[in-house]
Write a protein that binds this DNA or RNA. Structure first.
Lengths: 374, 374
DNA sequence: TTGTATGCGTTATCAC
DNA sequence: GTGATAACGCATACAA
């Protein structure tokens, strides 16, 4: 080691100390100085596909490593007008019942080089407050799993902010949407149950906050009417466990008897309904009552429940949302598109069913499992 | 309406058109021009507590509204060196099992004027990849619900990045942490079960990814040893439903008989264990076997389970994490602190228990519920 | 390939 | 209270 010649490591140490003394961050200028090149050369080294010689690249990267230099995304976004951040608006409730959605979206965005800025809503009405924040933060786009009003959509348009609605519809507006066909799901479930001989339905719907459950209810009611079956008893719910129990109680009170089948707007309500039927009312499910839900949440698959339900292809839907959004952001694709997925029927064991495709058995005596094997 | 005099609205329209034509954003200069003041005046109007006269304030705000002006957070953070963003690192699995955590943290941070930039990990090892992103994005601080190595912590220190560990410990390092006393929880559970006469324990632990479950296991084992009871059979698990069933099977195989009680590292495993015990093995729980978990997740409270478990005060813990982090960010509080919360015992109905505080009944015949009422 | 000069949109400093 | 001017840290057009 010669004393007269400073190594680059020594220089780096001195520079770092100076920077720390000035209480500022390491910038591309510092790296440039240490590497003996210009600031723009440093900038180019951190831009994939820029034209830099191997020599300078090596020099710059060594200097950057010695200084712990990381480019500042805020400064970069100021000039490139891309923050590589995407806002995700989701209700606390939705995250509670579909926690996998968040992870899926996050993974999908990460895979596309974007980060997720999270906005959770206690109530759907809080959306106004978060929008102001979103504009400030210069996100490149928004995935909204919350109800947006037409005026919100207009504001997105006005600010040229790409947006994808997730499981929310907005009639008469051209917005990118990713949904599951909830109307079809409701119809499918009603069809399968009717085919197995169920005649009198009860429906535990949702409240107005969440259009998904009302779509499902509408589909089921439509199909039931088409089949000429008695009008179902419909009661509202709040998507939670308790609503399932209260809903069943209300339906029985209103009907004066136990219906053949209960269709619940969500699995958690179905599970609440199921537990109440079995453990409080002592009903044999599916012997005396069929119960079905939607979503195939994790507990629906547990041995105690083994719920008859329909699964939304959430991973596919999250991927589609990410894809649509990134197409608008990166390729400036201005066309709007609606991607509609179909739910998958999960037979489970809480509803009496005839095999799919079997001749309809409306009015025929339904299959009863022998009590012995229950 | 006079033709000769342009209203401010007309001017605003023309200005907006010009801006759109140049394909640039509305800036504080545009607002200044429209309001007839300087750009600095506009800036001050958007800074709470700055000295601006009522007149200019009104002028500026009107112009800003007409132009849909919103300050650019990226530019602001460049000079203030505050992004008002906080990174939250969480494993997909943790979000799956404790979805409320995310909403709590998000709400707490929002209440403190900060946004959450989300980083989900498929595996704990992915933490290296996200850290590089975090440095780029100039977040003000980090809440990490993932395992950080000592070298990670060193890097946080080096970059002077405030960090709070959530439910993770790091021995011999001075970091802000918020945890639940999992060791104590494990001890408490073992004590209560032992007091009710359970002698032979099985433990379904976790894998090394998640220190929480091993702490719980250690606490339980410690206490069991202290009480002079037979050594428990410990098998690993992966925190999921299936692990509960497989764990019970393995424990019975290893022991050659059914133990008195199973302690599971998480509720989901406890539920898996419970379902397997009741529905596959036909065991009477808690008559023949007691099962207990940790966390008091939502399904643990459902009628079908009514699990004996311990609840972490997640809302309090999230608030504490937010508070600690914001203290370091906003008040430059450099002291490190460990906030340790106690879990709350939930009696449930899957374990035979004597009332808390009753004399220990080790070795005494345990209470058995008559089979008739099961 | 490399360096120079400029601008992104804001806040901060300082005269006035 | 108000306005000029200088940063903040980077990317990019352009000249070399």
């Amino acid at each position: 080691m010669s004393k007269s010649k400073l190594t680059v490591e020594d220089e780096a140490g001195a520079l770092k100390a100076a920077i720390a003394a000035e209480n500022r961050r390491v910038t591309s200028y510092d790296v440039a100085q240490l590497a003996g090149v210009s600031q723009s050369a440093v900038s180019r080294c951190f831009k994939p596909g820029a034209s830099v010689s191997r020599g300078t690249y090596a020099l710059v990267m060594k200097a950057a490593a010695l200084l712990d230099y990381i480019p500042n995304a805020a400064a970069r976004s100021l000039i490139t007008r891309r923050s590589h951040m995407v806002a995700l608006i989701i209700t606390s409730q939705a995250n509670l019942y579909y926690p996998e959605l968040l992870a899926e979206v996050s993974q999908q965005m990460t895979a596309r080089g974007k980060r997720v800025l999270l906005f959770t809503l206690q109530r759907e009405a809080d959306v106004d407050r978060v929008l102001a924040d979103i504009w400030q933060y210069q996100v490149d786009g928004v995935i909204a799993a919350a109800r947006l009003s037409p005026s919100h959509i207009a504001e997105f348009d006005r600010r040229r902010m790409p947006v994808v609605l997730f499981n929310r519809q907005l009639r008469d507006h051209t917005v990118n949407t990713v949904t599951c066909d909830h109307l079809e799901s409701g119809r499918m479930l009603a069809s399968r149950l009717a085919a197995a001989g169920h005649r009198q339905f009860g429906i535990i719907a949702g409240n107005d906050d969440y259009s998904v459950a009302s779509e499902r209810q509408r589909g089921a009611c439509e199909r039931i009417a088409e089949l000429g079956l008695p009008a179902p008893v419909v009661v509202p719910g709040a998507y939670d466990y308790r609503s399932g129990a209260l809903g069943l109680k209300a339906i029985i009170a209103q009907l004066g008897s136990v219906p053949d089948a209960i269709i619940c707007g969500s699995d958690v309500m179905a599970i609440g309904c199921l537990d109440y039927a079995r453990h409080e009312l002592g009903l044999d499910v599916p012997g005396q009552l069929s119960v079905a839900g939607f979503d195939a949440v994790e507990p629906s698959n547990w041995i105690s429940y083994n719920l008859t339900t329909l699964r939304q292809p959430l991973p596919k839907m999250a991927a589609a949302a990410a894809e649509l959004l990134c197409a608008r952001i990166d390729q400036h694709d201005t066309g709007t598109e609606r991607r509609v997925f179909s739910a998958q029927f999960i037979e489970g064991a809480t509803a009496r069913l005839t095999p799919a495709g079997a001749p309809a058995a409306i009015g025929a005596p339904s299959l009863r499992l022998p009590v012995a094997i229950m």
